[in-house]
Simulated assay, not measured.
Amino acid sequence: MLDDIVWAVLPYIRLVRPWQWIKNLLVFAPVFFAVGVLNSSLFSRTLLVFITFCLASSLVYTFNDILDYKQDSLHPKKKNRPIASAEISKKNAILLIFFLAIGIFYLVMLVPSIILPILLYVVINIFYSFKLKHIAVLDIILISLFYILRIIAGGLATEIYVSPWIVVCVFFGSLFVILGKRRAEHTKENRRLVLNDYSSEALNFMLGISASLAIIAYGIWSVTEHNSPYLVYSTIFVVFAIFRILNHIYTNPHEAESPEILVFKDRLILGSFLSWGVYIFWLFYLV
């Protein structure tokens, strides 16, 4: 009986994509850089924001899969998604959206200051799923905006000032990751429709620009936003990670198609992120 329950639940787990929730850790950025992670009140409020964005992102993924199930069923990889493969009916998927929406509403009532960013995140994503994802350049800009909304929500929930340079870093950093995915997908025959409006040259150019601006923005933040003269050396970890990801994009594009998996698959990239985190924690919390 337990096996039956597990097999019945697994498609729903795949549908809500919990491995994508790693993106929602950005909500902790304001409290982390404000040296407030060890404050139980601030941490608990940020945790609520994190859970809210996890539910909201899962709602959006489910909604998008309902809209695209016919197109996904013809895709060599996406055809295995729960709705496209008929493991989950559209009716049950809509019911899941309803329950996710109830959970979001309840959590937002606990942290009412995040109503606007959560509302913008869900509403823009709905328009994105219907039409905006088919408009070249606008599609990648909007995805970057979703990352920024996470940081803003984290700041609003804790009443912590969010540095403009952090916003700029996240904007260009997320653009770099998104363009890396688009560049990897562009080489495939079965690709999303909007990629027909991109050229490989344009993607390469935008990828290089976003990587450069992400490094520059982080470098400026490291010398202007903290009184420690040692923060600038954390740029080394950032540059290494970006260059390593760039190398994957051009040598193993199929790996760059899933950056959230690539980070854990490449031990050097994972090591650079962990080293950066330890170094920043040491500077902000222990020195």
Rank of each mutant, 00 (worst) to 15 (best):
34 A>N: 15
34 A>G: 11
34 A>H: 12
34 A>S: 15
34 A>L: 10
35 V>R: 13
35 V>T: 14
36 G>H: 04
36 G>M: 12
37 V>I: 15
37 V>R: 07
37 V>H: 14
37 V>G: 11
38 L>S: 10
38 L>E: 13
39 N>I: 05
39 N>P: 06
39 N>A: 08
41 S>A: 14
42 L>V: 09
42 L>G: 07
43 F>E: 00
44 S>E: 10
45 R>N: 15
45 R>T: 13
45 R>D: 13
46 T>K: 09
46 T>N: 14
47 L>K: 05
47 L>V: 12
47 L>D: 04
48 L>D: 10
48 L>F: 06
49 V>A: 14
50 F>T: 01
50 F>H: 04
52 T>Q: 02
54 C>Q: 10
54 C>G: 13
55 L>D: 05
55 L>R: 05
55 L>S: 02
55 L>W: 03
55 L>Q: 03
56 A>Q: 07
56 A>V: 07
56 A>W: 00
57 S>A: 14
57 S>M: 11
57 S>F: 13
57 S>H: 10
58 S>D: 06
58 S>V: 07
58 S>I: 06
59 L>K: 01
61 Y>G: 03
61 Y>A: 03
61 Y>W: 12
62 T>C: 02
62 T>Q: 03
63 F>W: 05
64 N>F: 15
64 N>Y: 07
64 N>L: 04
65 D>Y: 11
65 D>P: 09
66 I>L: 12
66 I>V: 15
67 L>W: 06
68 D>I: 08
68 D>M: 05
69 Y>A: 01
69 Y>Q: 08
71 Q>A: 13
71 Q>Y: 04
73 S>F: 04
73 S>H: 08
74 L>E: 11
74 L>P: 01
76 P>G: 08
78 K>M: 08
78 K>N: 06
79 K>Y: 02
79 K>D: 00
79 K>E: 00
79 K>P: 01
80 N>K: 12
80 N>V: 03
82 P>A: 06
83 I>T: 02
83 I>M: 04
84 A>I: 05
84 A>D: 02
84 A>G: 04
84 A>H: 02
85 S>C: 07
87 E>L: 00
87 E>C: 00
88 I>K: 00
88 I>L: 00
89 S>P: 00
